[in-house]
Nucleic acid binder design. Structure first.
Length: 157
DNA sequence: GCCAACGTTGGC
DNA sequence: GCCAACGTTGGC
């Protein structure tokens, strides 16, 4: 089983929203590298660090789990959607989404600053300067370490 | 609000 | 295929 980190702006959709909804659909990925990761490597049951970007502070807010593997994102065919892509054909969809389920919410966010200062997380993608990818693979030891730090802050769910 | 980093587009 | 221009991401 693989481990992941996925970014969401909490003003748009937060870990609290996921806790409330139980599960959600991860639409709007419009980056080929992120799409390829979802299409090729993301499997049912994979665990995901739910990351709050453009937040105060930015950081890992909790854990989700993949509950449906990649399938075509219908928003690409919706002309009224922000995610519309006129170049994508229904018979050959360009963009995919997955569904994720709520697993756990940390009592507080593990801030990006703490991730950067943690020697155990050296090399983790999200702490690299200029890293914008919204779907990132995470090494199992890095995943476990972030979860341990998050749980040390307390957990609900 | 600023801006560095990065991805995409399109002229050539 | 090159690369300048442009748009977006996302920390600060």
């Amino acid at each position: 089983m693989k481990r992941w980190l996925m970014k969401s702006e909490p003003d748009v959709y937060s870990i609290d929203d996921l806790a409330r909804d139980g599960q959600t659909t991860w639409e709007g990925v419009r980056n080929y590298q992120a799409r390829n990761s979802m299409r090729d490597d993301m499997k049912l049951g994979d665990l995901v660090l739910f990351y709050h970007s453009n937040a105060t502070p930015p950081g890992v807010a909790g854990i989700a789990r993949v509950c449906r593997e990649a399938y075509p994102d219908p928003t690409q065919f919706d002309a009224t959607s922000d995610y519309h892509d006129a170049g994508s054909k229904p018979e050959d969809p360009r963009w995919l989404r997955v569904d994720v389920a709520f697993v756990e919410r940390f009592a507080s966010v593990v801030p990006l600053d703490a991730l950067k200062r943690d020697p155990a997380l050296e090399g983790m993608a999200v702490i690299q300067k200029g890293q914008r990818l919204s779907v990132q693979a995470v090494r199992p030891d890095h995943f476990d370490h972030v979860v341990a730090v998050g749980r040390a802050l307390g957990a609900q769910g």
